[in-house]
Amino acid sequence: MASISKRLLLFVAALLATAKMATSVTRCPDCGGAAVPYPLSTSPTCGDQLYKIRCDAGSLKFDTLNNTYPILSINPLTQRLVIRPSNFIPNTCVTVDIAHGGIKLNSNLPFNVTSGNTILYFNCTDLLLRSPLNCSSTSLCHSYIKGSRGEATKCEMAQLCCTFRTGGSSNSYMIRVRESGCRAYTSFVNLDPSLGVGQWPEPGLELQWLLPREPVCNTEADCDGNAVCGVDPNGTGLRRCVCNSGFVWDPVAGICSQSERFLLD
């Protein structure tokens, strides 16, 4: 037992020492007091450039293909962030981003919509009755309209409303809003439908990002002492900082850390 405890202590100490070493990646500075964890990037000199977000006047923003949404929270351990859905146009049952067709993510980038969102669609046409969405009289969207004190109350006289959970292959990158479908929407993360509307969380749409690969490099100077600039084993034609023997790539911290097997040998 003492031997195991000693090994664990050595393992933790080695990890801490490794974390203090110079790395080939740089975490971006905080934005208005909000941390910007790796691999998210607010400038060309930090983070991973595939994971771009924006720091705009002290507030974090997420750019889609066609619009920009405020970031409400970021969780680097689960690789997830929450953006605020579009507001309603005053005194209407139409959301502002109908002009952009709703939320459209770039499918070539490492972000997608998670399965934890409940989407409420409002002001829909009869075409939605042929969709897999729940547009029945018991749909959760009716509860929201009746219990909401915000602009959604304007949707009470609209033709039709519907509800669905995200995460299917057809909606991983898009929340559509259009004249021939539904003209308004809102979203809630990990919603418990048994709660009254007054107990619901604030509206949000949860996105997740894929774990980043090792940093791209041109020379050995682009990598730290625990990695070499080598050919990408995935055959992309790029060169990446490949971790040395006894080290493994930690995509959350953005460093080559000593592997547990190596430390316990």
Rank of each mutant, 00 (worst) to 15 (best):
S257Q: 13
L40R: 09
L50W: 04
C46T: 07
L210Q: 10
A221W: 04
N244T: 14
N244G: 11
Y69D: 01
C31G: 02
S43E: 15
L8I: 15
A57I: 07
L10T: 11
G58F: 05
L128D: 00
K20I: 01
M174Q: 13
A13I: 11
N190L: 13
L15Y: 09
A17I: 11
T18R: 09
F262T: 14
L263Y: 09
C31Q: 03
N87E: 06
E156T: 12
Y51R: 07
G167R: 05
V12K: 11
L72M: 10
S41M: 02
R183D: 11
W249I: 00
D265Y: 08
Q49I: 07
V189Y: 12
C243H: 02
R261K: 13
A35T: 15
M21E: 15
C93A: 00
P76N: 10
Y121L: 15
T186N: 12
Q79S: 07
T118G: 01
S180R: 14
G47T: 06
Y51I: 05
K6R: 13
S139E: 11
G254Q: 08
P44I: 07
N108M: 09
R54V: 08
N67T: 08
L211D: 00
G47V: 10
L50G: 04
L8K: 11
Q159K: 14
F88C: 04
P215H: 04
Q159R: 15
Q208H: 06
V248G: 15
C124S: 02
N171D: 15
Y144F: 15
F88E: 07
S169C: 10
N244C: 07
R130Q: 11
A253F: 02
R80H: 08
T166D: 05
D232Q: 04
P90Y: 04
P215C: 05
T26I: 12
F62G: 07
L264N: 10
R80N: 12
H142M: 09
E220C: 03
C141W: 03
K6A: 13
E214G: 03
D222V: 05
G58W: 07
C223L: 06
C141P: 03
N87Y: 01
S86E: 02
G237P: 02
K146Q: 14
L65R: 02
